[in-house]
C-alpha cells in the first residue's frame, strides 16, 4: 500500500516547486501544479515502476469567478489499479489565457472528457485531435457551466415572478 506521504515526497523530489498546495481532503492526496508541468507529472506517475498510476478516472473543470487570475481549474483524478491509490491534481488557469495541453496521447479516454470540459467551460486543450462541443448543440455561443449563465430555459412563459413569489 502506498501512503500519501510517500507519493508526495517523490513528486516534490522530482518536480520541486512546480507542485504545491498538498492536501488530503477525506484521505485523497490532492495537489496543484502548473499547466507546463501537468503532462510531465501525469507521464511520470504513469510510467513510475512502483506507483503505476495509469488509470484516468476523470477530468473535469471548475469555475471560480471570484478569484482573479485563477478563474478556472481543471481537475484530474487518476488511479493506480495495482496499488489502489488515487491522486487528484488541479491546474488553475486564468480566464484571459485559458489553454492547457491535452492528455490524449497518454489516455485514450481523455478525448471525450476534455471535449466535455471544453463544452461546459470553454477550456481549450492544446493539441486535442478534435476539440468540438460534445453534449450541447454546435450553434451554442456560450459555455453554460460558467457561473454567470442561467440554468433556466429562457423561453418559459409560465414561470412568472408573480406565481413563484420571486
Amino acid at each position: 500500500m502506498l501512503s500519501n506521504q510517500e507519493v508526495a515526497e517523490e513528486l516534490v523530489k522530482k518536480f520541486g516547486d512546480d507542485v504545491y498546495d498538498f492536501e488530503e481532503p477525506y484521505g485523497l492526496l490532492t495537489l496543484t501544479t502548473t499547466r507546463e508541468q501537468i503532462i510531465p507529472i501525469l507521464e511520470y506517475l504513469f510510467h513510475h515502476d512502483r506507483f503505476k498510476i495509469n488509470f484516468l478516472t476523470d477530468i473535469t473543470g471548475i469555475h471560480y469567478p471570484d478569484s482573479p487570475g485563477q478563474e478556472f481549474a481543471v481537475v484530474y483524478h487518476i488511479h493506480s489499479l495495482t496499488q489502489n491509490f488515487r491522486v487528484r491534481i488541479k491546474v488553475f488557469l486564468a480566464e484571459a489565457d485559458i489553454h492547457i495541453p491535452t492528455a490524449t496521447p497518454l489516455y485514450a479516454s481523455a478525448n471525450w472528457m476534455e471535449r466535455e470540459t471544453y463544452d461546459f467551460f470553454g477550456i481549450i486543450f492544446d493539441g486535442h485531435p478534435d476539440l468540438r462541443r460534445i453534449l450541447n448543440i454546435e450553434e451554442m455561443d456560450y459555455f453554460p457551466m460558467r457561473k454567470q449563465y442561467p440554468m433556466e430555459d429562457a423561453t418559459r412563459q409560465d414561470k412568472t415572478d408573480a406565481l413563484f413569489g420571486r
Binding site: 453534449l135 450541447n136 453554460p144 449563465y149 442561467p150 440554468m151 433556466e152 430555459d153 429562457a154 423561453t155 418559459r156 414561470k159
Partner: peptide, 12 residues
C-alpha cells in the same frame, strides 16, 4: 412540459 429539467438544453 420539460418536467424537472427546466434547463437551457431541454425542450419545454
Amino acid at each position: 412540459s420539460g418536467g424537472i429539467f427546466d434547463t437551457y438544453s431541454v425542450l419545454q
